[in-house]
Design a protein around this nucleic acid. Structure first.
Lengths: 341, 341
DNA sequence: CAATCTAACGCAATCGTTTGTGCATCCCGT
DNA sequence: ACGGGATGCACAAACGATTGCGTTAGATTG
C-alpha cells in the first residue's frame, strides 16, 4: 500500500509529471491550460494524492518547518508562547517543531544544529542569553530567526518582548504609593536580557522616586529555588526591606517561601510583586500581585514576523516590538507596616 | 556559503561518494577498509560535514521524526508528558514535533495527515477519544503509534497510562475512612477513556464499600469551567453529598469554585479529591488532596515503546502499561461533618 | 502562403543521499 | 604459474518532487 505519487497522478491524467506539478502549483499554473489544470486536480483528488514534503523540500530547499527553542516546557511561561506561535504557523501551513534545551547552552547548540540539518526554514528562539554563541552562529549563516521573550547583546535579530521598563515602573509606583521606601529587587540570572532590563528599570524607577535603587540581589536562575536561596542569603546578611520587586513569578514564589520560613508574613510584614502573571498566580493565597505579560500574543507576533521574513519580507535590522503590560494588583502587596520598634 | 555535501567530503578524501557514505555509516562500514574509514571521517570532521536529513529521508524513507499529538499545551498535564518524551527521543537522535489540536477532532485529523505527508516515523497520541477515526486511519495504514494518557475502544495500539482503578480506589477508601457515605463522582467527558475508566472504578469501589455508586455527574470537558457548571447544576437539582471524587484536577477546581459560590466551604462542609496532581495543586489553599500520576514517566515510556517499534521490535498487540499512582493526602478532605439539622 | 509568434506541454537535469551490482586487485594454495 | 575467493572500491540507479529549456502545433501577421 505505497503512497500515490505525482507520477501516478500524471499517468492517470495523461500528462507529463512536470505538467502535473505545475498544474497543482498555483504559483506556476500559468503555463498550463485551464482544462488540464482541472483534469489534473480532479485526478489528484480522486487518487488522494498528497505531495511528499521531503522530496519537495530537497528540491526547493524549503521545508515549511519552523523550530521553536525554549528552555523548559514545564515552566508555565512557555506553553502560552508556544500556543500563540503554533496557531499562527499552522494556519499558514507551517509545522512547528518544539525543542526543549533544558536550560543548557550546549544542548541548545546541538539541538539547533540538528534542526538546521533537518532543513528548518527558520527559528523562533526564547532562550536567548545576553552573550549567545548559538545566536551568533545563526546570524553568521543568515538563518531567519526571531527572538521572543529574551534578546541578546548583538541585537541582529528582531525581538518580540514586553515593556519591562513600564512593568517595573508600575510595581515601584504601586509600592511607593503604599508607603514603601526600602524596596529590594530580586533579579534574575545576569546572562539574560530580562534580568538586565528589569534590574536597570528598577534602579531608574527608584531614583525617579527619590529613592536608592541599590538594594538588589539576584537569583541564579528563574526558578523558585533560586529565589528562595537568594532571599535567605539576604536575610542572613541582615538586609532590611519592606517590599520585594521580583523579576519573575517563580522567583517571587521562592521569596515568599524564604520569608515564611523566618516567620515573616506577606503582605503584612513584607509586600511582594511578581512578574509575568503565570496562570495560577491569581489562585494562590494570598493571590499574587504581579505584572501581566501578553505571552500568547508575543508568540503570535514572533511567528508572524518570522513568516513575513520567510515570505521574502525581512524585518528591518534589529526591530524591537515591546508589547504593553498590565499591572495586576492582588493580595501580596499592602500599605507599609508602621515600624514596631 | 552553501553547506558541505557528501560529494565534497568524498572528493576531498579521494573516494567515491558511495564509499564515503558507507564509511560514515557505522552499519555499512564492513565493505570499507579501516584506513579509508578513518580518512573519510577526518575529512568530514574537518569540513564540518553534516548530512542532509531530507535527502537521506527521501532515500531511506525514514525521517527520525516523531510527532506528539496533544489537545492543549496550556493544560499543565501535558508539558510533563512532553518533557519525558522529548528527552528520550532526543537522546536517541530523534526529533519531536509537537502538534496541538486545540481539542478539536477535525484539527487533529488534518494535523496528523500533514505529519504523515511530512514523513514522520511514528506518532505518540495523547488525545485519543474512545471512538477515534484518526486512530482508525493510522491503524489502517499501519503507522507506528503509541497512545499515552488516553486509550481508544479499538485497542489496536499500545497504551501507556496510569492505574486509574487503584487511583480512584484510594480516593474512595480515604473518604469512606473519614466517614463519608454520600460521595459524588464528577466525571470527565464521556468520549474519553479516562472518564470511562475512572467512572467505572468509582462505581465498583463504592459498591465494594457497600455504598451506592450512582451519585454521578460529568463535565463536558476537562476544564475548570465544565467542572463548575456540572456542580452548579447538581446543587440546583438538590443533590446531596458530603464529598466529591473528581476525575481530574481542573474539574475539581471548578467544583470547589461552584461550592464556594453557594457558601459551602471545603473541606469543612464538603471534601474534594482531584486527579493527576498538576504542578500547583499543592500550593493552593487549602492544598488539594489528589492522586499523583507519573506523567513524565508516562511520556518517557511512550517514547521508549515507540522507539523499540521503530527499531523493528513492534509491541505485542494492545500492550497496556499501567503505572502506579500515589495518593496525596492534603487539605481538601476532612472527616465528615456531623449533620447539623 | 510563408514567416513569425505564442500558448501548452514534454524532456531531462537536479536536489543530496543510500545501496545493489560489478570490476579490479591481492593473497593464498596447489 | 594459475585459478578461486576475499576484499575494497567505483558506478549508477534509485527516492519524489521542481523547473529551465526545447519542441510542437495552432494562431497571427504581412
Amino acid at each position: 500500500m505505497t503512497r500515490v505519487r505525482l507520477v501516478d497522478v500524471a499517468r492517470e491524467a495523461g500528462v507529463h509529471p512536470g505538467t502535473a506539478s505545475r498544474a497543482l502549483n498555483p504559483a506556476a499554473r500559468d503555463g498550463v491550460s485551464r482544462r488540464t489544470v482541472r483534469r489534473v486536480e480532479l485526478v489528484a483528488q480522486r487518487l488522494g494524492y498528497v505531495p511528499n514534503t521531503l522530496a519537495r523540500g530537497l528540491r526547493t530547499s524549503r521545508s515549511f518547518v519552523v523550530a521553536l527553542v525554549i528552555p523548559d516546557i514545564t515552566n508555565p511561561l512557555f506553553p502560552q508562547i508556544v500556543r500563540g506561535a503554533e496557531q499562527v504557523l499552522s494556519e499558514a501551513g507551517y509545522t512547528l517543531v518544539l525543542t526543549d534545551t533544558n536550560n543548557d547552552p550546549a544542548t541548545e547548540g546541538s539541538q539547533v544544529a540538528a534542526m538546521s540539518a533537518r532543513g528548518v526554514d527558520g527559528f523562533i528562539v526564547a532562550t536567548a542569553r545576553w552573550e549567545d554563541a548559538t545566536l551568533d552562529d545563526l546570524a553568521a549563516v543568515g538563518t531567519p530567526t526571531v527572538l521572543v521573550n529574551r534578546r541578546n547583546a548583538a541585537g541582529l535579530f528582531p525581538y518580540i518582548g514586553a515593556d519591562d521598563r513600564r512593568g517595573v515602573d508600575l510595581c515601584v509606583d504601586h509600592l511607593t504609593a503604599l508607603g514603601h521606601c526600602a524596596i529590594l529587587h530580586l533579579g534574575g540570572p545576569a546572562n539574560t536580557s530580562t534580568a538586565r532590563d528589569r534590574s536597570d528599570a528598577f534602579r531608574q524607577s527608584m531614583r525617579a522616586h527619590g529613592l536608592s535603587g541599590d538594594l538588589s540581589i539576584a537569583g541564579a536562575s528563574y526558578t523558585e529555588q533560586a529565589g528562595a536561596e537568594a532571599v535567605r542569603a539576604a536575610l542572613q546578611q541582615g538586609m532590611d526591606f519592606t517590599a520585594i520587586v521580583a523579576a519573575n513569578d517563580l522567583l517571587a514564589l521562592g521569596a515568599a517561601q524564604a520569608l515564611a520560613e523566618r516567620g515573616i508574613t506577606c503582605p503584612a510584614d513584607v509586600s511582594i510583586t511578581g512578574y509575568n502573571d503565570i496562570d495560577f498566580m491569581s489562585r494562590l493565597s494570598p493571590p499574587f500581585t504581579t505584572v501581566r505579560v501578553p505571552l500568547r500574543r508575543m508568540g503570535e507576533l514572533a511567528a508572524q514576523t518570522l513568516l513575513a521574513w520567510l515570505d521574502g519580507r525581512p524585518p528591518d535590522a534589529a526591530t524591537q516590538v515591546l508589547l504593553p503590560v498590565k499591572f495586576m494588583e492582588r493580595g501580596t502587596t499592602a500599605r507599609v507596616a508602621v515600624p514596631v520598634r
